[in-house]
Design a protein around this nucleic acid. Structure first.
Lengths: 185, 185
DNA sequence: GTCTATATCAAGATAGAC
DNA sequence: GTCTATCTTGATATAGAC
């Protein structure tokens, strides 16, 4: 039995609240006080875990990067276990629209508004994924285009501009995954 | 003789300065005072033209949208004059990396950090361009993918994450334009 | 239309009790 | 480890002279 993650300690509660604030009120209003209010934890408590606002942003970005990495690692493991190329699985993992993607958007948004330099871990991750995604492709430029289109999906969510109906979104996703298969078989 | 545009009145100077502040110091530091300092115009002067910060953001977004619309209109005129489909020309116009794209990034960044609602004019524009770009395509899903990839290029510039060498960027651009031709001939 | 001076407030950060 | 109270600053906005 893998025990339930005891993840909902105070730290996680604070990060959850921070994301909610950004989602609900915009990156501008991501203030310590807003997080205090949204989390129900006192200012002293919040500042105990994140001694200043930069640390809070680092925490948001780090958690986002980490959970994204886990998701990709799982996708790649699945691929390898099936003896398949990893790239279509990466594409699928990147294009899923769920809470996690929202988390990505909120964290990126907060960091870029406040201190773009804090995005470095996200840049690192994107560079690595780019590399693995293009690797071994029979048409690297097309692979890069697919990766950019996947980025574009995130982009629109980030800008709060998500006009696709679920069917169109699904059609786009499946098409991108198909294309990836073609480039890696 | 078309006379030199007399565009460099105080208003434009202020908007230029605002973009420079975002580019140099991040959206967070886009303050009235920073614009005052960067533009050399006094606080009273700046607040005469933009009575509050929201008005300044509106001004940034509006100018961005307008110049983008002009650029697209020119591209479409060129296409029609040559009896060609407009979509490849739209793709070309959207993928050019220049000062204008930087302007887009700075304005978007400032608006989204501060007041996402102020992005509405940009959303409207993107919806329209999307529509025209997909219109009459022999493969609308692929057209949408191309548009998303073009978005992705902007996205990476926006996040300060622009890793492509100029040749790769050119290769991607030309490929996207080629694909667009295929879908509209 | 442009300027300086100043009022007001929101937000980050610290101190110290429990 | 969590809390309340308070200090300090940076930023918006106003007033009114030139």
């Amino acid at each position: 039995m893998t025990e339930q993650k005891p993840r909902n300690d105070t730290r996680e509660t604070i990060l959850d609240a921070a994301e909610k604030v950004v989602a609900e009120s915009g990156a501008r209003r991501l203030t310590i006080d807003a997080v205090v209010e949204r989390s129900g934890i006192s200012k002293g408590g919040v500042l105990y875990h994140f001694p200043n606002k930069s640390a809070l942003l680092d925490g948001m970005v780090f958690r986002m990067v980490q959970s994204f990495e886990e998701k990709l690692a799982m996708a790649e493991d699945t691929a390898r276990a099936a003896g398949e190329p990893v790239q279509p699985h990466i594409a699928r993992a990147m294009s899923v629209k769920n809470d996690h993607q929202k988390q990505v958007a909120q964290a990126l948004l907060a960091a870029i508004s406040e201190e773009p330099a804090r995005l470095e871990p996200a840049h690192r991750l994107l560079r690595e994924v780019d590399q693995r995604f293009i690797d071994g492709s029979s048409d690297p430029v097309m692979s890069q285009i697919i990766m950019l289109a996947l980025d574009g999906l995130h982009h629109r969510a980030l800008l709060g501009f998500d006009v696709f109906t679920p069917d169109i979104r699904d059609a786009i996703r499946e098409r991108l995954i198909d294309m990836t298969w073609t480039l890696h078989s």
